[in-house]
Design a protein around this nucleic acid. Sequence first.
RNA 1: GUGACUGUAGCUCAGUUGGUUAGAGCACCAGAUUGUGGAUCUGGGGGUCGCGGGUUCAAGUCCCGUCAGUCACCCCA
Length: 444
Amino acid sequence: MTKPLITPATLKGFRDYLPAPAMAREAIMEVARRVYRSYGFSPIDTPALEYTEVLLGKGGEESDKQLFRFTDNGGRDVALRFDLTVPFARFAAQHLNEIGVPFKRYHLAPVWRGENTQRGRYREFVQCDFDTIGTDSNAADIETLLVIHDLLSAIGFERFQIRVNNRLVLNGLLEKLGLADRSAGVLRALDKLHKIGRDGVLAELCERVQTTGEQADQVLDFAQLSGSPVEILNRLEEMLTGNATGELGVARLRELFQVATHAGIPPQRVELDVSIARGLDYYTGTIYETFLIDDPKIGSICSGGRYDNLAGLFTSQKLPGVGASLGLDRLLAAMETFGMIAQASTPAPVLVTQFDATRVDEYTRIGRLLRQAGLNTEVFPDARGVGKQLKYADKKGFRLAVIAGSDEFAAGVWQVKDLRAGSQSQVPESQLIDHIRTLLQSSS
RNA sequence: GUGACUGUAGCUCAGUUGGUUAGAGCACCAGAUUGUGGAUCUGGGGGUCGCGGGUUCAAGUCCCGUCAGUCACCCCA
C-alpha cells in the first residue's frame, strides 16, 4: 500500500526562495528599512486581502484585469492587493484622524498580479513602498528622489540611472497641441520611445491615437530633447510659454534638479527624460523610473510619482502625496544575473563542531556564550566525524569552526579553524570571543 | 490576455531517419581517512524522458491538449 504522492509544485509566477537568495532578499529589506527610517518614514502594514471595491478602478483598466479576485467563504467579493498604494489610500482615509498630516510611511509587503510571467515579472512579488502624503510641497518630491538614490546606492549599486519627468509638462504640451482629450493614448505611445524608437512612436500616434502627423512630430520633438537638465528645461520653457500647467511643471523640475545637485546627488545618476509617462492613471506630477545601466531589459526597478488626490474615492478630504516603490524581486532577478547573490546559505559565521558526544554540555554552553556576544553560532547536532562536520561547514559557508575534544578540554582551550584561510589557532576560553571577532574582521 | 520558442537525473546538457535494460559532467551519499573541509581515487543512490491523450508492431524522438519556463506584445516592480 503506497500512498499516492502529491506532485510538489508552485503556481505559475509564484516561487520558492532557497536560503542564499532568501538571505539576499532579507538583506535588501533591511537596507530599505534603514534608508526609509533615516528619512523619518514610519512602518505600516495592511491586509493582503481587501474588499474588491476598494481595489477596483484605482490603477486603471489593466490593473483591474490583473486582480486575483474571488468570493470568500462568507460570500464577500474580495481580491488580493495588486500594489501597496491603493491599500494605502484606503488606510489613509480610514485612519486620517489618527495619523495626521503630513504623513510619511513605508510598507514592505508582497503584492499579486495575474499577468503573464517573465524574468523579473512574477505574479507574487514584494514591493518596498514609501510615500509622503498631505503636502503639495516640491520638497517632498525632491526628497523622494534622494530616497531612491540613497536606497540604490545603499544596496550596493553604482551604475543606475533615475529618470525623472513631470506630468504637468506633458499635460501642458498636450493642451497646447489640442491633444488633452487623448492624453492616455499619447502618453502610452510616448512611454515606449526607448523601446521602439521615434518611428515606432510616430506610427502608433498616427494610427492608434489618430493624431495628425504634425502633432505627432511635435510630441516627439518635445520628448526627444537631449542635453543637460537645465538645457532641456530652457527649451521646454520656450515651447510651453503661455501654458500655466506646463510652466509650473518646468519650474518644479528646475528646482528639483537644482536642489538635488546642491544636496550632493551625482548629476549623472539623474536624467530628465521627457518621454517617460508611467501607465498608472493616478500620477499627476513628478514621475520617477530607475534603470540599471547593466540590465535595462529588466525594466524599472524603482518607480513612483506624485498624485494630487490619493484617497479621493474614500474621503472628501484632499490628500496629495508623492512616493515610489522598489521592486524587490525584480531587483533580485537582476542581481542574480550579475552574480551578486552570495553563495553562503547560513547567516551564522561560526560552527561549533560536536567532537565528543559526551560533552554536549560544553558545546551547548560555548554556543550560547558566543551568541550572547553577538556572534551568530550554530552547534552541529550530531557527533559525526570532524571531517564531515567541516565539510558541512564549508558547503554552507561558515567562516569559522570551533573544535574541542578531550585534549582541549584537559588543557582548557578551544581550537578555532578559519575555513577560508585554512589556518587554525588555539586559545583559552577567556580570549575566545575576541579572537573570533578579530578573525571575522580580518578576512571579511 | 495574445503570439512564439523551450521542457531528458538536484544543475548544465547528449541521445543519430521513431527501434532492446536512456547517458555524461558537475552536485549528492558512502568509503580510502574513527582528531580536521576544499584536492584525488573507488563505489553508490537518483530519471513515470513536465503531465495527459493520440498515431504506430514500436514514441524521449511524430501529432493534439495541458502545466511550467523564457521571449515579444500588453502592461509594469
